[in-house]
Design a protein around this nucleic acid. Structure first.
Length: 892
RNA sequence: GGGAGCUUAGCUCAGCUGGUUUAGAGCAUCUGCCUUACAAGCAGAGGGUCAUAGGUUCGAAUCCUAUAGCUCCCACCA
């Protein structure tokens, strides 16, 4: 049957993925083999595949497939994350489209909608991962809100509470006015913003003229009527309704006259005290700071210290509240504009300056966060940070690249308590139950809570309906941090066999932007509950950018659709494209051209297969000496490459490993070996050569399989007769045996020789069909060498010569000189120029070597082998120069 | 404001504890080729004072110092 000249991935991919599933090759059960376990960074349950996932999961699949082929019991556990805030936002939007407000329905109704949404859109991303070829154990698919994971979360919460690590309290937190929930510090992203610094007039209250001492350095502002005022610089004039003090630095000479005074908040006309605190930076602005304890973290701190009143001028959605007394109901942004205009009109705006500052935005909803005082649950981090630092610093967990160790340490050293409560419904509801008479109990179930409540209050009449469970849910990461533990049910049943077998897992592949959110916290949980790391190695991928280095984003429209790419280039092509553009740890500048390269490589493999498959085997032909020589060489070459690939993969240098495999197949196997063993057109091939070639092909496919699972399976299946149930993915990866450098070096010479003759053909415009003759000097080619050269360069003969050959084109390889007699075709002038150039180069080279050798410091200090090497360079250069000079003389 | 990292060919990057013929790869470019597996291909070629300035050393892309530029992370100066 005719095989197409082009590889068509689609049917091949579907066929083999189904086969793998059917054969249960992805599934893993504990057995006597060494386990190799990876847990997927769970994507958002309702998310769709983007380029970041493609990169991340391709790398995981490469590692997992390789481990499996090394005979390990490989287990890659997939799953999804309930993504509390993101999913809730999506459900709220969807309801809004139906005219339903979240506030109009009950929690139960809302959760029903959310589950419907999850079931409808959930898991799409996992299906997409199958298209990519991911060899996950799908039977183990987990969800951060399924029963086991939920119970694990609740049990952990209760345990930490009982250990005194979880507490509840009123704190200044990051408030997301869009999602209407508190956020952790990690969920706030600071962005540079070009804004303005507004200088406002705060008039002295009941100015009786006292205090103006006229001390040196004092700066007293007075208006046209002689009224004195202080000037306060602020970026947020809309918060003046919440001002409850003005603060100066007691050591600030400029503002001594304000000590003990009261000032009037502009527009608001409320008198506030001037307080003193060294916190205020004398150099900044005017040295006068307005204090709004309800809306700024620092002001809150000042407010606590100086026992100031706190006025919350914002509603939860960041519109102005009744408490502000003015502008009620307006948004933050509107008020800013309005109040600036009003201040200006009232003559209370001294001046405005351009100013760059950082504004915190919600990572999820992208709206500016508002510091807000509220009652929240917190997890104490001091102890957890301590236990999480050690394994990374000690190298029990290795980071790739290692620069992240510093980052990790720095974060843990400066860690603050983790705000774990969210004012959302979609998530794990906090297992705290409030008692009718105040206070609360924390328990895994309502029944246990009731029991505790009765014990605590002594009131035996209490019933379940008297208890009110906390409305809040837990931060999504409070479930993710248990992932490696909870996937094998290690939280609820830490002694179960699976958990004991698979935990700790081996490699974690993740993006660096969640090192704190996730990686650090998993280490904490692992150490706290198992006194054991959750994984041994963490590989941080880069961020996927476009080829111009811009982040991929919806608004830029520069992010390709992964499934569309797979459709156009095949899964293997896309995998290769992604891996090639992904140096370890660096950002990935994705260029579709590399995906094209991947597709082209698939085609290359495909066609190599077509060639080999077309050969008719014959037992009656003797193995040609060229084939024998070529096959022997390739064996060494292959072994060296295997060693290289293994080394690269062991160091997580995945793109290098792929590049080595790529070059091995294309350059060494296809361009050299296949050309050497290829029989003449229509002629059969000797059985021995064919068998050995097939064996090499098979090994190459195995090496490539982790990177390109589909095409390698397809060809592996066709290469030889296979039994049902066999697969390359469960075959053994070839291991490296020793290779002989001598053989490899000799072959490199051969390559140069062949290339040199090809170049001469090109220069002289000689058809490859014309046979040439080569004479070699200072080279002792063996029969195999000669046979291969004759075949690939189409030589009638290769003879050794002790001297100069006239009327020949020539080139040099090392000290050897090769002549191709071309009577009448030699352009003497051109030849002379070329030789002269080579000679100049060689002389310059010799000079540099001689300079080195002439330096007594060098010969005395450098190690013997280095000096020896220089002497060899010298000798070689001299030989070469002698040859060139001789040759030039001949041409004269 | 603090910390980390980067700067090598047009682009993206290797170059490990300083010495392997005066720096390598892939892509891109250029030149030949529709040569009987592959034009999604083959055979070749060009292209770099290793950011800059000093220093250490017999010897520096590699180690040290400074400068410039870029990137990332952290941080409560309004």
């Amino acid at each position: 049957m005719e095989i197409s000249a082009q590889y068509s991935p689609r049917q091949v991919e579907d066929k083999w993925y189904a086969y793998w599933l059917d054969q249960g090759f992805f599934s893993s059960k504990p057995d006597g083999r060494e386990p190799y376990c990876v847990v997927i960074p769970p994507p958002n349950v309702t998310g769709v595949l983007h380029m970041g996932h493609m990169l991340n999961n391709t790398i995981q699949d490469v590692l997992v497939r390789r481990a499996r082929m090394q005979g390990k019991n490989a287990c890659w556990v997939p799953g999804t994350d309930h993504a509390s805030i993101a999913t809730e936002a999506k459900v709220v939007n969807k309801l809004a489209q139906q005219g339903i407000k979240k506030t109009d329905i009950s929690r139960e109704e809302f959760l029903k909608h959310a589950w419907d949404w999850t079931h409808e859109h959930g898991g799409i991303i996992l299906k997409q991962l199958r298209r990519l070829g991911c060899s996950c154990d799908w039977d183990r698919t987990a969800f951060t809100m399924d029963e086991t994971r939920s119970k694990s979360v609740i049990r952990t919460f209760v345990d930490l509470y009982n250990k005194g690590l979880i507490y509840r309290g009123v704190r200044m937190v990051n408030w997301d006015p869009q999602a209407l929930t508190a956020l952790s510090d990690e969920e706030v992203i600071f962005r540079d913003e070009h804004s303005k610094l507004y200088y406002l007039r705060y008039y002295l209250h009941n100015d009786d003229g006292s205090g103006a001492t006229g001390t040196e350095g004092e700066i007293i502002h007075t208006d046209a009527q002689g009224r004195r005022y202080a000037v306060v610089a602020t970026t947020r004039p809309e918060t003046i309704m919440g001002d409850t003090a003005m603060c100066i630095n007691p050591t600030d000479p400029k503002n001594q006259w304000l000590r003990g005074k009261q000032v009037v908040v502009p527009l608001v006309n409320r008198a506030i005290p001037v307080i003193e605190d060294t916190y205020v930076d004398i150099e900044f602005g005017t040295g006068c700071l307005k204090v709004t304890p309800a809306h700024d973290v620092n002001d809150y701190m000042l407010g606590e210290k100086h026992k100031l009143q706190s006025i919350n001028i914002f509603n939860d959605d960041a519109t102005i509240s009744e408490a502000a007394g003015m502008y009620v109901g307006m948004s933050r942004e509107e008020v800013r504009k309005q109040i600036v205009a009003d201040l200006e009109k009232a003559g209370l705006l001294e001046k405005t300056e351009d100013y760059n500052n950082k504004v915190g935005y919600s990572e999820r909803t992208h709206v500016p966060i508002e510091p807000k005082l509220s009652m929240q649950w917190f997890l104490k981090m001091e102890h957890l940070a301590e236990i999480a630092l050690k394994p990374v610093v000690d190298g029990e967990i290795k980071f790739y690249p290692p620069k992240y160790i510093n980052l990790y340490r720095h974060w843990l050293d400066n860690i603050k308590d983790w705000c774990i409560s969210r004012q959302l419904w979609w998530g794990h509801q906090i297992p705290a139950y409030y008692l009718p008479e105040g206070g609360f109990v924390v328990a895994e179930t309502p029944e246990e809570a009731l029991q505790q409540a009765i014990e605590k209050t002594g009131n035996k009449q209490l019933t379940l309906s008297d208890l009110r469970q906390d409305d809040d849910v837990l931060d999504t990461w409070f479930s993710s941090w248990l992932w490696p533990l909870s996937l094998f049910n290690g939280v609820l049943d830490p002694n179960n066999a699976e958990f004991k077998y698979y935990y700790p897992t081996n490699d974690l592949i993740t993006a660096p932007d969640i090192i704190f959110f996730w990686v650090a916290r998993m280490i904490m949980a692992g150490e706290e509950y198992q006194h054991q790391v959750p994984f041994r190695n963490v590989y941080f991928t880069g961020i996927v950018r476009d080829k111009l280095g811009r982040k991929m984003s919806k608004s830029l429209g520069n992010s390709p659709d992964p499934l569309d790419l797979i459709e156009r280039y095949g899964a293997d092509g896309v995998r290769m494209g992604i891996l090639l553009s992904s140096p370890a740890g660096g950002d990935l500048l994705f260029d579709e051209a590399l995906t094209e390269q991947g597709r082209n490589f698939c085609n290359k493999i495909w066609n190599a297969f077509r060639l080999v498959k077309s050969w008719q085997s014959s037992n009656s032909i003797e193995q040609p000496i060229a084939a024998q020589y070529g096959l022997e060489w390739f064996g060494h070459r292959l072994n060296r490459a295997i060693a290289q690939i293994n080394d690269d993969l062991d160091k997580y240098r995945i793109s290098e490993a792929l590049m080595t495999s790529f070059k091995l197949f294309r350059d060494e196997f296809s361009a050299w070996l296949l050309e050497i063993v290829k029989p003449a057109y229509g002629q059969p091939i000797d059985a021995k050569t064919l068998e050995q070639t097939l064996a090499y092909f098979e090994q190459l496919l195995a090496l490539l399989h982790p990177f390109m699972p589909f095409i390698t399976e397809e060809l592996w299946q066709q290469l030889r007769t296979r039994q049902q149930g066999e697969s390359i993915m469960v075959s053994l990866m070839p291991s490296a045996s020793a290779h002989n450098e001598q053989t490899l070096n000799e072959f490199e010479l051969l390559k140069e020789l062949v290339a040199g003759i090809r170049t001469i053909r090109q220069e002289k415009n000689l058809s490859p069909k014309n046979q040439l003759c080569a004479k070699v000097r200072d080279l002792q080619p063996n029969n195999g060498f000669i046979a291969v050269a004759a075949k690939l360069a189409n030589l009638s003969a290769m003879e050794t010569t002790a001297q100069e050959v006239q009327g020949a084109a020539s080139f040099r390889i090392g000290t050897a000189e090769i002549y191709v007699p071309l009577e009448g075709l030699i352009d003497t002038e051109q030849e002379r120029t070329k030789l002269q150039q080579e000679l100049d180069y060689a002389r310059r080279f010799l000079d540099s070597v001689l300079k080195k050798l002439g330096n007594a410091n060098f010969t005395n200090h450098a190690p013997a082998h280095v000096v020896e090497l220089e002497r060899k360079k010298e000798a070689d250069a001299r030989t070469k120069i002698a040859h060139l000079e001789e040759r030039l003389k001949q041409l004269e």
